[in-house]
């Protein structure tokens, strides 16, 4: 069964059509890049998958169920903005995640944190932007979820941090789970993706395996994206 399925999904904000009749199926075991320019609807789509927004039309199914309390147990979501309470320290955040999510694996989180020399007493407030992003990702990836939705996980961090984040995604790869990464930094993520979804003006333009684009077009997804989205 598909882990994520959108059927005729639309979202309208007043006069703005943010998503327009989106049909999309994502299978378990896939790492998918959700690629589109700013304002194309990436964040709206991810928020709909989380039940943070409700569709204007159409439907979303997560492992066969509409977004709700049951699907939140399946979905691990990294928002595009900092969202952790900055007065908390790492230990408190882990308690918080363990309280909210039955699938939170503290051992896995501790292991990754130790690797970065981050201790439990460190508070979010004291951290650099890059470290904060790493901690957020570690918490999100330490859940044994069925669907990881990562909204711009590599935006605004240095290249070494970017590598670490992509490494973490590969390290935690689980054939029973899917990962959706929204980004416009395609060249950086291309190698870790199975397939890409191009989105423009709220519409899905293309869903294709990375190597199929490279094979058919003789260019990288990054180059192809630049061609398709040329301003």
């Amino acid at each position: 069964m598909a882990i994520l399925e959108c059927k005729g999904l639309s979202k309208r904000f007043g006069s703005v059509q943010a998503l327009d009749n989106v049909n999309l199926t994502i299978e378990p075991g896939r790492v998918v890049g959700l690629l589109g320019p700013n304002g194309s609807g990436k964040t709206t789509l991810l928020k709909l998958c989380n039940g943070l927004l409700t569709p204007s039309a159409g439907e979303i199914l997560i492992a066969g169920a509409k977004p709700g309390p049951e699907t939140k147990a399946v979905v691990s979501y990294l928002p595009d903005k900092p969202y952790l309470a900055d007065w908390m320290n790492v230990g408190q955040l882990m308690d918080f995640f363990a309280d909210f999510y039955g699938d939170f694996d503290r051992e896995r989180a501790l292991d990754m944190l130790a690797h970065l020399n981050i201790n439990e007493q460190q508070s979010i407030k004291q951290m650099s932007k890059g470290t904060r992003e790493k901690v957020q990702l570690i918490l999100v990836m330490s859940r044994k979820a069925g669907l990881y939705l990562l909204d711009e996980p590599i935006g605004g961090v240095d290249p070494a941090t970017r590598d670490y984040i992509l490494d973490t995604i590969i390290r935690n790869y689980n054939p029973a789970a899917a990962v959706v990464i929204s980004t416009h930094l395609i060249a950086d993520v291309e190698q870790v993706l199975d397939e890409v979804v191009f989105i423009r003006n709220g519409q899905i333009m293309l869903q294709s395996p990375v190597d199929a684009i490279r094979e058919d077009k003789g260019m990288s997804v990054d180059q192809y994206f630049r061609e398709v989205f040329k301003c």
């Binding site: 075991g29 896939r30 790492v31 590598d163 992509l166 490494d167 590969i170 390290r171 790869y173 190698q191 870790v192 993706l193 199975d194 990375v210 190597d211």
Partner: peptide
């Protein structure tokens, strides 16, 4: 597969 994928920085399915 996972270790090789990590070393090369590529998707494990690839």
């Amino acid at each position: 597969v996972r270790d090789l994928a990590m070393e090369a920085g590529v998707n494990p399915n690839t």
